[in-house]
Simulated assay, not measured.
Amino acid sequence: MKRRREHTKSWLLLTAPIAVLVTFAAGGELLFDVFRGDSPYFVAQAIGQDIVTLVVALPALMIGAVLAARGSDRARLVWFGVLVYLVYTYVIYAFHVRFNPLFLVYVALLGFSLYALIGGLATTDFERIKARHTRERSAKTAGTFLLVVSILFYIVWLGEVIPALFSGDVPRSVADNGTPTSGVHVLDMAWILPALAMTGLWLRRKRAVGYALAGALLTFLALLALAIVFMVVSMALYGQAASVVPAAIFGLLGAASLWMLLRYMGGMKAG
């Protein structure tokens, strides 16, 4: 047990270079004109997301790492969730943002975040986290919530992609962003939505791994929803076509995810 916790702390040390790189990436994009040839629609979204990454995700990552190093399992789950958010974000930046002076920063951020997430999960005692959770009802509710979110977003994304495939057109979101495909569609349907569904099922079946992944994915959902709200606001401020409907929907999703996360964490014993 002690050796496993020491190995986990070694992965937590990657938080330091990640924090520096996030400051350069998100801060550099906000202060300097680094986007070269990207569509104004995409750039406006990126600016909104960078604000959330710098002001919310970065402090959450650092505080989570410090408290996790002191033995807090709740903080460890939040740390995992921020890492999922960073991997998700910088896959898109590394592959969809046109080559710019921050390219190597994006690549390094993706690498550090991905390996910190893998290493942290590999050295986590899932049974310990399950044993600390004392409210089965909140766990089952969280599992149902993750399943429902997964199903709803599959319906939404497939409802956009399948008609485009049959008509031979490009989905509107892809055309607006000026990218070859939608990184959001790829990451959601290939990674995030299956992860939400599997975690929801594992949690309802009381499998130990589900108890750890649920806290991480609820953190991720809250962060991503907040980022999308800021994207819509940024688009409006920069004169891009923006609808209040997506902002309202994701605002509700973010509030629901945060409430579910707090309720879920409240069911865990401190430590």
Rank of each mutant, 00 (worst) to 15 (best):
R4F: 02
R5A: 11
H7T: 09
H7R: 11
H7V: 09
K9C: 02
K9Y: 00
S10L: 15
W11D: 00
W11H: 04
T15I: 02
T15S: 11
A16Q: 01
P17T: 06
L21Q: 10
L21A: 13
A25W: 06
A26N: 12
A26H: 09
E29N: 15
F32C: 04
S39Q: 08
F42C: 08
V43S: 05
I47C: 01
G48R: 14
I51T: 13
T53Q: 12
A57E: 14
A57P: 14
A57T: 15
L58T: 10
P59D: 04
P59R: 01
A60Y: 01
I63H: 02
G64T: 02
A65T: 05
A69C: 07
R70A: 11
R70S: 09
G71R: 00
S72T: 03
R74D: 01
F80I: 04
G81T: 01
V84E: 06
Y88D: 15
V91G: 04
H96T: 15
R98L: 05
N100S: 10
P101W: 02
P101R: 08
V105D: 01
A108H: 08
A108Q: 09
L109I: 11
L109Y: 04
F112A: 07
L114M: 07
A116M: 10
G120H: 03
T123C: 04
D125W: 00
I129K: 03
A131T: 02
R135Q: 14
S138P: 06
S138Q: 14
T141F: 14
G143W: 02
T144M: 09
L147P: 03
L152S: 12
F153H: 15
F153W: 15
Y154I: 14
V156N: 10
L158Y: 12
V161Y: 11
I162K: 10
S167F: 02
R172Y: 10
R172I: 14
R172Q: 12
S173W: 01
V174D: 07
N177G: 06
T179I: 04
P180S: 04
T181R: 06
G183S: 03
V184L: 14
A190F: 13
L193Y: 09
L196V: 03
L196W: 08
L196Y: 13
W202R: 06
W202D: 01
L203A: 09
L213F: 06
G215S: 06
F220Y: 11
L221F: 03
L221G: 08
I228H: 14
M231E: 15
S234E: 10
G239V: 02
Q240C: 09
A241D: 12
A241H: 06
A242H: 13
A242F: 08
S243V: 05
A247L: 07
A248Q: 00
L252R: 06
L253R: 09
A255R: 04
A256Q: 07
L262F: 01
G266Y: 08
